[in-house]
């Protein structure tokens, strides 16, 4: 299985990339890690006439951080977060090890995953939970888009043909808060897309009250979803079993799964409930055990 022929460009600066993209527009596809695009091209499900390989653009391969946010270039590969524990954003580490398989993680990129907009994307769920913003740029303009406004439908985003995802920004919880997170994924085997994926993250003040909460869902809608109703049930509460139960039920209502060979709609809803519950319980346990943990 081989792709149809295409023209290949490997710009080394953003300007060059925007220029080529503007020239070819709809005909062109951006090649980042290529771990979704190239298989589709090999199966001839995708046949772009022009491929713009952005791996040589070093600006998009950086991570910066200030007091309020972490900004990662879109070319950061999944495996970076598999090996990096960020104490204020533990969900990145928690998620990375569940994506695809170890070899794919060494190549696939966070930005590529978002732009591809697979409803089962693990990063989609996690970065929704983290209230991430996506930096999108073309030759003529740039804009920040909240990730929850970024996905439109299965494999469809708000990206215009001339635009490229260049960075992802994640707000940081208060430095004095404790943040816990889990990514729970039901897969039939390693390398499988999620049957259901649930990302949960909570920050607690020193009273154990939730100050920030995020719940993202994969493979239970046309795109990755944010369980914002469930999130709101957590804010300003301690994670009691009642609160957890309520949030889990709410998340199960908020999702919109389809029945298929991986399970019925009912099953997938139930898995959202089970995973939100398990994730929140684990986070609560992390908070309770926080002092026992080595610094």
């Amino acid at each position: 299985m081989f792709p149809y022929p295409f023209r290949y460009f490997a710009p080394t600066t953003p300007e060059e990339a925007f220029g080529v993209l503007e020239q070819y527009g709809d005909e062109a596809k951006i090649l980042a890690g290529g771990q979704s695009l190239l298989p589709m091209m090999k199966l001839r499900l995708a046949a772009p006439g022009v491929l713009i390989d952005i791996n040589g653009i070093s600006e998009w391969n950086r991570i910066t951080e200030d007091a309020h946010a972490l900004t990662q270039g879109s070319l950061i590969r999944h495996s970076h977060w598999e090996h990096t524990h960020h104490i204020r954003i533990p969900l990145l580490y928690e998620t990375a090890g569940h994506i695809a398989d170890p070899l794919v993680r060494n190549r696939g990129t966070v930005g590529g995953s978002l732009a591809h907009a697979d409803p089962a994307a693990d990063w989609g769920a996690s970065l929704l939970a983290l209230k991430a913003q996506v930096h999108v740029q073309s030759r003529v303009r740039e804009r920040w888009i909240a990730l929850r406004d970024f996905f439109i439908d299965t494999f469809v985003t708000v990206l215009e043909p001339q635009e490229i995802v260049t960075a992802i920004q994640i707000p940081l919880a208060s430095e004095t808060d404790f943040t816990g997170a889990r990514y729970l994924k039901l897969e039939r085997k390693v390398g499988d897309f999620a049957v259901v994926g649930v990302a949960v993250t909570c920050s607690f003040n020193d009273q154990g009250i939730v100050t920030e909460a995020g719940i993202g869902l994969a493979a239970v809608g046309a795109s990755p979803l944010s369980a914002s109703g469930a999130e709101s049930l957590l804010i300003n509460h301690p994670l009691t079993s009642e609160v957890i139960q309520e949030a889990a039920e709410r998340a199960a209502e908020e999702c919109d799964p389809q029945s298929d060979r991986r399970g019925s709609e009912e099953y997938k809803r139930a898995m959202v409930r089970v995973f939100v519950k398990r994730g929140l319980r684990a986070i609560q346990a992390d908070w309770e055990n926080r002092l026992k943990k080595p610094a």
């Binding site: 090649l31 290529g34 090999k42 491929l51 794919v104």
Partner: peptide, 14 residues
């Protein structure tokens, strides 16, 4: 770094 060479373009590893 270990990668799957069936899913990388030769031209991309110039």
């Amino acid at each position: 770094v270990p990668v799957k060479s069936c899913t990388i373009l030769a031209i991309a590893v110039q």
